[in-house]
Design a protein around this nucleic acid. Structure first.
Lengths: 139, 139
DNA sequence: GTTGACCTTCCAGTTACTGGAGGCACCATC
DNA sequence: GATGGTGCCTCCAGTAACTGGAAGGTCAAC
């Protein structure tokens, strides 16, 4: 199979598939004309990668997961460990974003959003209410 | 003030401050010895940047926000627009992460995490339950 | 034999920094 | 005036995971 077909099947852009070959995640064969020639197993791998990436796993996670997948002697504990670390990463990000969201939505609500220059958003960013912008807030 | 003092005051690493000068967000003076010489207004600007970045605004957002902040004729609507777009970006990310989290935590719970090779996480990524890995799921 | 789709490689750009090398500047001390 | 330590300078490279584009080869159809 050529890269275009594999792109259609796996849902990954051809560019991405080439990149994955570059970094050693897949190793398709080559036809005599120089075209990459993908086997079913390559397509399977790429689909696996697509789903792992969709779950937010890093490329290095994906590399480890592929290795574990290939190893029928693996302990599921190793897979679970990777997933748990990733889950915590996600939780961290969600927490961070949720905090940002809270502050930001508060500010957006407070802003009139009209033609006047007065703006609580800018005021907050500039800490205009703060007398001494160099010390930590006391509250 | 030298860059080290400003770094302490603003909470930004010196490296980041230099980078911000590079991309034109601040323009400190120079002393005769070539050192950057920061005024109070520069420090204020950098603290502004630090807070905007902490809220997740992109550098380009920050550039716009600084410009609006400097413009006393601004309409708060412009500021609000930037903030609202950013808020939607955040909501999008939270939604995405929340979905990932749901799937992932489901899989993690299903995985024994012991010495045996059987692993629902890998099974899911490989879509082993799927007879035809090339079509969309029917359910 | 030429069009057009598809494939190739290679290089550069994206975001927002961060690390490090190599080298002055400054201050204190001997 | 030499030395040591810290701080500052510039410039280059690397990060994560692609993505876009240029320049050019291949293939099937007409």
């Amino acid at each position: 199979m050529n890269i275009g077909d594999v792109a259609d099947l796996s849902g990954l852009p051809a560019k991405t598939i080439r990149y994955y070959e570059d970094i050693g995640l897949v190793a398709p064969l080559r036809s005599s004309n120089g075209y990459r020639s993908f086997r079913q197993s390559d397509v399977h791998k790429l689909a696996f990668l697509g789903r792992a990436r969709a779950l937010g796993f890093t490329i290095e996670d994906c590399r480890s997961l592929l290795k574990l997948y290939a190893d029928t002697e693996r302990a599921s504990a190793e897979v679970k460990e990777i997933a748990e670390v990733h889950l915590e990463r996600i939780d961290g990000k969600i927490a961070e974003l949720t905090e940002m969201r809270a502050t930001l939505s508060h500010l957006v609500k407070a802003c009139a959003g009209d033609q006047r220059p007065d703006c609580p958003i800018l005021a907050d960013l500039a800490m205009e209410n703060k007398a001494d912008p160099g010390k930590k807030a006391s509250g």
